[in-house]
Design a protein around this nucleic acid. Structure first.
Lengths: 112, 112
DNA sequence: TCTACATTTCGTCAAATAACGAAATGAGAG
DNA sequence: CTCTCATTTCGTTATTTGACGAAATGTAGA
């Protein structure tokens, strides 16, 4: 019960949904996500911790950077929810703007 | 985006999940739900307002009482989530205790 | 070792949340 | 119409949340 409500709570913030949609395209390091969301690094880090705690994402250190990616495991509830999220928000203006922003960032060679 | 995060937020409280699971058995009036959850009436009313706002339930006045029931419509996201919720928490101790409590209340002839 | 830099943790603040009791609302019964 | 009673709304309080900047952590490279 508490695990389920916590899982839903982790999805109840727009910025965390933006992060999950961003990660659908590929694993991203914190600075890339920060650049797209235009939030303080510490804020993004907190959101990532929450999503990781719920089992939606995992992290992996690579050099100086920490890459986050969607997790295929998670808890009892996350697989079904991830499946729904993949289909949802595909036409969302914010999500599309974030994808555009992500493409531009790649060319800018951020954080390296 | 905001609609989706709001929808998840409405499911992020354990007491609201308890209410949704209770309503799977049958439509219930506020006083029945209040008796099972053991919360103040005003608190339960607030939770019901939030669930109705998200589209998970509808209300229907019948005599002095207001009956709430699961909604088949809701928003773009609620049908899939309701389907998941039906399968989830079926073995949850709290949910099972609530169901027992609900059965006992029936015989007690509460609120009338 | 020392420096640079990506990320996390800490401390703080404003806003949102969940709870309660009291007061307001509204419908049925007398 | 008035009284009763189920429910909602209002006002308050304690806790949680999401944001930020500053400080701490940790790794890569000089």
């Amino acid at each position: 019960m508490n695990q389920l409500s916590q899982t839903f709570k982790s999805l109840s913030d727009p910025n965390r949904l933006r992060i999950l949609k961003l990660l659908e395209s590929r694993p991203l390091c914190v600075c890339e996500i920060t650049e797209v969301l235009q939030l303080a690094t510490s804020t993004v880090s907190k959101h990532l911790t929450i999503l990781r705690g719920a089992g939606f994402i995992t992290d992996r250190k690579q050099g100086k950077w920490v890459y986050y990616q969607l997790s295929s495991k998670g808890n009892l509830y996350t697989p079904a929810l991830q499946s729904l999220l993949r289909d949802w928000l595909t036409a969302d203006r914010q999500v599309q703007a974030d994808m555009d922003s992500l493409s531009n960032i790649q060319t800018k060679n951020l954080c390296n």
